[in-house]
Amino acid sequence: MLEVRELEAWYGQAQALWGVDLSVADGEVVCIVGPNGAGKSTLVQSIAGLHRSTRGTIAVDGVDVARVPAHRVGDHGVALVPEGRRVFARMTVHDNLVLGAYRRAVRPGLSAGLDRVHALFPRLGERSSQLAGSLSGGEQQMLAIGRALLAQPRLLLMDEPSLGLAPVVVDEVFDAIRAINADGVSVLLVEQDVERALEVSARGYVLAEGRIVASGSSAELTGSALVRRSVLGL
C-alpha cells in the first residue's frame, strides 16, 4: 500500500526527517510513536503532500507521489485526518462531510458515504446542520475522521487523533479506527498515547529526532524500555 524510502524533509534550512523508511501493507494498521517534535507530523504531512520540501520516495501502490501536488495526492487513495482536527469551523457538519467527497471520482459515493459515517458516528448525524466550530473536541475529531472517510481512501493517515480528548472519547475514536480498518482501509496512525496506539496496530515505528530508531510488531514494542526512553526523550 505505502512504501516510504529514504525520506528527508526540511523546514527552510532545518532538517526535520533523516532517511526515514517505512511501509504499510494492504489492510494493515501501523503506528508511529515518538516524543513531541520528533518529526511525526512532518512525516504524515509529507505523505499527504502538504509538506513538499522533501527528498526520497513515497510510493502509494507503487506510484511515487512525492512530487504530486497536494490536491492530487487524494487521487491515489490517500486521505488525511490532520493533527488538531482542523475541521472547517464556519461550515456545517454536513458541509464538512460533503467536502470530503470533493474529488470528482468519489462524488458518486457521497450519499452511501454519508450513511456509513452516520452509522459509525451517530452524533454527527444528529448535528448535521450545526456549525463545526460549535462541536466539542471529540465530535470535531469524529467529523475530521468522517470527512476523510468520504474521500473513500484506501490509506487513512491519522495525526494525533487523541490529542486533547477525554479518555472516554478516545476509546470511541480508537473503536472507530478498528471499525474503519475492518472495512479494509489501511491506517497509518501517529499517536502520542503509545499504549493505545500499539494496542490498535499490528506494527509500529519509533521516531525520535527525525529518525526511525526502532520498529517491530506491536507486541515487541509494548513495554519496551527503548520505546519508553525515546518517548520520554531520555
Binding site: P167, Q192, D193, V194, E195, R196, A197, G223, A225, R228, V231, L232, L234
Partner: peptide, 21 residues
C-alpha cells in the same frame, strides 16, 4: 519528576504506570 507515574502516564498513555519498567 521523571519517575513520577502520573508524568509517565501523561506522556505514554493510560496504562503505562501500571506496567512500570
Amino acid at each position: 519528576v521523571m519517575n513520577d507515574p502520573d508524568v509517565i502516564r501523561a506522556y505514554l498513555g493510560r496504562h503505562a504506570h501500571a506496567r512500570g519498567t
